[in-house]
Design a protein around this nucleic acid. Structure first.
Length: 269
DNA sequence: CTGGGGAGC
DNA sequence: GCTCCCCAG
């Protein structure tokens, strides 16, 4: 074999090898989910590790069962975050007491009941009371006005409620979920009450199943309107929700991006 | 505090 | 029936 032919052969072999390496790398990236460490769930078992990264400097308050960031300008939270486990659902014993009240933990003061009275809007929970039934105190803290947003009655009592109920079902089947909930204002200028509580145009949820090995996530972005709709048609990826809201959920968690690009509602049942 | 509504199980 | 989301008085 001539020298020139040998060189061409070697180059061809190298090109084929390179192609195989690149394809394998690509496959590996798509399949990285399977390579997440078995203790992945432990890494994000603390709420502190999952707080969204935002440009805001609003007051963050930690309650027994959840955390929130309070936005004085809107007189409601930017987001709420908590973990919901199978065990919490199992230990659902607390009774709902409906003691809606101002939240003295908020330095700048919160909205109050009068702001919502006769407004035509429900005092909609961001963190549902029924998710905190594992503790009287945790449930009680969901009735702080810092956890309320003006929601249209049909949205709150039908569309949103159905989503919340299914999330509880998912939690009991999937061991533990990481849940973010919040309002999205868009160009809204509508306010209610003396404290001018801003009425959101949409509400969002981002949900992560952090149970090994079924890592998955899904998000919802639903219009705040007085009509009942099937929440399932508003399923989007967490990636999309992050683009829409500007929040980076679970920013400290390694590899979490690999589970944020899927919105298959059929994986949740 | 008690009364009520409506959806869903 | 019950629970869950609420409202008004």
């Amino acid at each position: 074999m001539k020298k020139i032919e040998s060189i061409i052969l070697i180059v061809i072999i190298l090109l084929i090898a390179l192609f195989l390496i690149i394809s394998n790398l690509h496959i590996f990236e798509d399949d990285i989910k399977a390579d997440l460490p078995i203790n992945f769930v432990l890494k994000i078992s603390k709420i502190e590790d999952g707080l969204p990264k935002t440009k805001f400097t609003h007051q963050i308050v930690k309650y027994e069962g959840f955390q929130l960031s309070y936005n004085e300008e809107n007189e409601q939270a930017d987001w709420t975050a908590y973990i919901l486990t199978k065990q919490m659902i199992k230990n659902s014993t607390a009774k709902r007491k409906d003691n809606f009240r101002e939240d003295k933990n908020i330095i700048t003061e919160t909205a109050n009941n009068n702001d919502y009275k006769k407004s035509g809007f429900d005092r909609g929970h961001l963190v549902p009371a029924a998710d905190m039934k594992w503790s009287e105190n945790a449930m009680d803290e969901t009735f702080f006005m810092s956890n309320m947003s003006p929601q249209y009655p049909d949205f709150n009592r039908k569309t949103w409620k159905n989503l919340e109920e299914d999330i509880r079902n998912w939690a009991s089947k999937n061991d533990s979920l990481y849940i973010f909930t919040g309002p999205y204002f868009g160009n809204s200028t509508t306010t209610i009450g003396k404290n001018e509580v801003k009425v959101p145009e949409y509400f969002f949820k981002a949900i992560y199943d952090i149970s090994y090995p079924e890592y998955k996530s899904i998000a919802f972005f639903i219009k705040n309107e007085n009509s009942a709709k099937d929440y399932k048609i508003f399923a989007i990826t967490v990636d999309s929700l992050e683009s829409l809201t500007g929040f980076d959920f679970l920013p400290k968690i390694e590899h979490v991006e690999t589970i944020e690009n899927n919105a298959d509602i059929n994986k949740w049942n």
